[in-house]
């Protein structure tokens, strides 16, 4: 439990460090601002509100997509998100680490790369909607399939729309974190 989560956290942080150093060195040597991926957090209060609004807006859509997906894939087994059984084991250290991984590290790192670098790369080549759909499909595809595809794709579309609408990654980080936190709390109960 604890050891698995420490490894998972180390992998996330290390790969993020490699990606960010690539971004900073390449952008820097081309005279471009790496923070333009959406590292613009002010006005913080407004951005946090956008994130909370996005979370509330996502709830009925993600719930509807979960129901549809459960029905569509009722005959096909979808593996469980590996962090869920760890959390239900109840060990305090495991629960604390799981919250750090799912509610702090994952939102910051995944928003940076999926809605920051990847979304903006597509956005520079195609229009808004192809970028929203393509990056959300990839984001959903890296989660346990097939049952989670539709709900996570829907959440990712909302995260990408928040990035597009506000120009900041903070609303997506807040929405992503609140979503993961509520999922973990439900798993704990």
């Amino acid at each position: 439990g604890v050891q698995d989560l420490i490894i998972e956290l180390a992998v996330m942080v290390l790969s993020a460090a490699i990606g960010l150093s690539t971004l900073w060195s390449m952008a820097g040597s081309n005279g471009q601002d790496p923070k333009a991926i959406g590292y613009k957090f002010k006005p913080a209060g407004e951005n946090v509100l956008w994130g909370l609004g996005g979370f509330i807006a996502s709830l009925p859509l993600v719930a509807a997509m979960s129901l549809l997906s459960n029905w569509a894939f009722r005959r096909i087994h979808t593996p469980e998100q590996p962090i869920i059984p760890m959390v239900s084991s109840g060990n305090a250290a495991v629960v604390a680490l799981a919250f750090i991984v799912a509610c702090v590290a994952a939102p910051i790192i995944e928003e940076t790369f999926f809605r920051g670098t990847l979304y903006n790369a597509f956005r520079g080549k195609t229009g808004t909607w192809p970028s929203v759909l393509a990056t959300s499909a990839l984001f959903a595809a890296v989660h346990p399939l097939p049952g989670n595809f539709l709900p996570i794709f829907t959440l990712a579309c909302i995260l990408a729309i928040l990035r597009e609408r506000t120009g900041s990654l903070l609303p997506g980080m807040v929405c992503h974190s609140v979503f993961n936190t509520s999922s973990l709390i439900i798993a704990l109960l």
Binding site: I7, A10, V11, M12, L14, S15, A16, I18, G19, L20, T22, L23, M26, A27, N30, Q32, D33, P34, A36, I37, F113, T117, L118, N120, A121, F122, G124, K125
Partner: peptide, 24 residues
């Protein structure tokens, strides 16, 4: 920022994540 730089940054993150997940 140019799409090429952004895509390379994403790929270096994504590929490292996959390699590290498999190796560690």
């Amino acid at each position: 920022i140019s799409p090429t730089i952004l895509l390379r940054a994403f790929l270096s993150y994504f590929v490292s994540f996959i390699i590290l997940s498999v190796v560690i």
